[in-house]
Amino acid sequence: MTISGESLKATSQKKSSKNKIFIEIRRDWCKGCGICVAFCPKKVLELDEHEKSSISNPEACTQCGFCELHCPDMAIELILIQEGTK
């Protein structure tokens, strides 16, 4: 995961789970509308000093998918990474 301008953070995981969910934000696509920030039920996201969405509280994420589905810029993706894969 080396796409430029991207931030990728793991969300909270159940310890037993072999899968990890990451929130990926493509900063070059994000236009900073704030929809993800405003509607996130757990306040996981915030706008940074460049008016881009960023992940400030990954542990609180419940992977509800609201941000991913409602991002008008398609900048947010929840990525499932299985244990043992890169």
Partner: peptide, 14 residues
Amino acid sequence: FMPHIWCPGCGHGI
């Protein structure tokens, strides 16, 4: 072609 031409917050992206 991304990012697209729509304004910030435009519903069309959704």
